[in-house]
Write a protein that binds this DNA or RNA. Structure first.
Lengths: 232, 232
DNA sequence: TGTACATCAGTGAACGCGCGTTCACTGATGTAC
DNA sequence: TGTACATCAGTGAACGCGCGTTCACTGATGTAC
């Protein structure tokens, strides 16, 4: 290995460490991530960070993309671990994986799905990673339809403008998926993140104590609405 | 009117004005509300604010309570304006009112339902106002049941720990409501805020352009799940 | 293999800005006799 | 009705802290001949 690539490797490790420290900071400061604070924790002077990230916002962006990818990978892996033909099992596995990831990484979750960071607008590179979780969910529906395990609801129930929007969206997320089924998939996706939001941001605090069971039951209700077959 | 109460009235007006200015600030700074910024906008020196609020956090709390009350009132008024026996109409009206309020007051909505403010914990006075929207929603279900317009799903579908949690919760939100119906009401409530979150925080940006129709349709799906009678 | 040069990481000081909160104070407004 | 006193709103300076970013710099590490 040439000396230059040692330098490159050390550099890559530094970048990773900065991101790791920054992730820890997110937990206490929320999105008010402080470059100086990160530098302090690394035992460097604050300006040294600029060797690795050109600005605070770029560091934030890197964290956001990594978080989306981690969440997306968790959801995809969970889905992949379930029997292909057990749609309900796949749905539950994917939803649980999202929730588990969020509970294990609450600050990163908040960065992705909480209030927008003031003064920060996410660049376009975040779009792809952000689409992984919903893509995985609707893939379950598409597979089910292809295997005739599932029937699409009548499309006539959709108002025309909604149908048109969903048709375009289907091209991106799940080509060929009937609009009425995509609408239900979106409902499930919305519900999933509504549930996680409420749990994580304290909305269940004096209300629901058996969180796992509650989550599973709410998820099952959505599976019913979508029409996923399987044991209730 | 005695002179003293003139002073009291002026004081009350100042408090209102401070809150109004602070609300404007929320729109740009998010929850990083700055007392000095508010004071500047009012043409006062920053320390003068302390005549009216003992600390920044108390001002935040006042804004939060007012926002919850405004949202709660909007939802209640919308529900009250619909035919008592048209459960589906009431449900839609309440949901639309919540969304409308959120779209008109995005920063305040984010304060209530977005990521927690770092370093701030909401005091107990916020609990009551925060419960108004879900209380209104489940009241629709309770009314429907009382008027035999609605039947409760079989309670056997609920895992026991969830049933117990929901039984306690029913005592607070809607005494006597069967747990399985409350579970569906909670699903609707979760969905409602999931929908608003996604719309407000940009999750629908390159995906759904007919927001009103999409929202109504998603809300209708939840009404189906709950079993609300009425025209689909 | 050894030397001259280029690259790069990290330092330390500084700029210009922001913040919440305290404190002694001035003046105006109200109250009591 | 007039005067002495108390209350209160708002001022201005200060404390002590934080932040992102720039810039000239030192030394170490790598590269080319």
């Amino acid at each position: 290995m040439p000396a230059s690539s040692i330098r490159a490797r050390v550099r890559a490790e530094m970048i990773d460490e900065i991101k790791a420290v920054a992730r820890r900071h997110l937990a206490t400061d929320g999105a008010n991530l402080s470059l100086r604070g990160v530098a302090r924790d690394m035992g460097m002077v604050s300006s040294a960070i600029y060797r690795y990230f050109p600005s605070r916002d770029e560091l934030l962006t890197a964290l956001i993309i990594e978080a989306y990818d981690a969440l997306g990978a968790a959801v995809e892996t969970a889905d992949a671990g379930a029997d292909r033909r057990d749609l309900r099992g796949r749905w539950h596995a994917a939803c649980r994986a999202a929730r588990d990831w969020a509970l294990r990484h609450p600050a990163e979750y908040a960065l992705l799905y909480g209030s927008p960071v003031p003064g920060y607008t996410a660049p376009d590179d975040t779009i792809g990673p952000a689409q992984r979780p919903p893509t995985t969910l609707v893939a379950i529906l598409r597979d089910g339809l292809a295997a005739s395990l599932l029937t699409a609801p009548p499309g006539g129930e959709l108002p025309e403008p909604v149908r048109a929007d969903l048709a375009e969206l289907a091209d991106v997320l799940a080509p060929g998926l009937p609009e009425a089924l995509l609408a239900r998939g979106m409902a499930g996706w919305t519900q999933l993140f509504g549930l996680i939001n409420f749990e994580l941001f304290g909305r269940l605090n004096r209300a629901v104590s058996h969180r796992d069971e509650y989550f599973d039951h709410q998820t099952a209700l959505m599976a019913d609405l979508i029409g996923l077959p399987g044991p209730t």
